[in-house]
């Protein structure tokens, strides 16, 4: 029930053409505006579904875009602007989760998998080579290899 109400009333923009950033929001300084756009892409629109505030035309997203620009005008660095928003809404607003204990698996998982996979593959190949050596195959001479390659190429 609660979810339904929230869904209908707060997130009036589900998948609507997201004509988000309006001309009246934009900063006169192009460099600062570009920074604002970059920061906006890092911030999640809270009432939308996985859109950044840069992509969403929800009213709250617009308010946050204006806030980001105000902070930049006040002289904040990019990190300070992000911290300003995170202080109010928590890590949830960051589309790039901060690196900390609870996101360790997220950030290191892919590289751990690559590493484990590489080790596994290495062991597998080494094991196979042991078998190969046991099978008593003399290494091919350069000439033999060339001929074999030619044969294989022809065959496929």
């Amino acid at each position: 029930m609660k979810r339904v109400l929230l869904a209908t009333l707060l997130a009036l923009s589900t998948l609507s053409p997201a004509l988000a950033v309006q001309p009246d929001e934009m900063l006169p300084d192009p460099a600062m505006e570009a920074r604002a756009r970059d920061i906006s892409q890092e911030l999640r629109c809270l009432v939308c579904q996985n859109q950044s505030i840069d992509d969403s035309n929800a009213p709250l997203a617009r308010d946050l875009r204006l806030l980001v620009r105000d902070r930049l005008k006040a002289g904040d660095s990019d990190d300070k602007v992000l911290a300003f928003v995170t202080d109010r809404y928590g890590d949830y607003v960051l589309l790039r989760p901060p690196f900390k204990a609870t996101t360790l698996v997220l950030w290191l998982g892919p590289f751990a998998i690559l590493l484990l996979g590489a080790i596994g593959t290495f062991l597998f190949l080494r094991g196979r080579r042991g078998v190969a050596a046991g099978a008593d195959t003399a290494p091919l001479s350069a000439d033999e290899r060339r001929r074999l390659d030619a044969l294989l190429r022809k065959d496929e």
Binding site: Q41, E42, R44, N50, S52, G90, D91, Y92, V93, L94, L95, R96, P97, T102, T103, V105, L106, G109, P110, I113
Partner: peptide, 26 residues
């Protein structure tokens, strides 16, 4: 990588470790 990124918010949430968003920058 895509799997972990897509499902991490769910995993974290059901373990009651907080809510995160994983988006394009990640």
């Amino acid at each position: 990588t895509v799997f972990i990124g897509t499902l991490y918010p769910l995993f974290l949430d059901i373990m009651k470790l907080g809510k995160v968003s994983v988006g394009a920058p990640f």
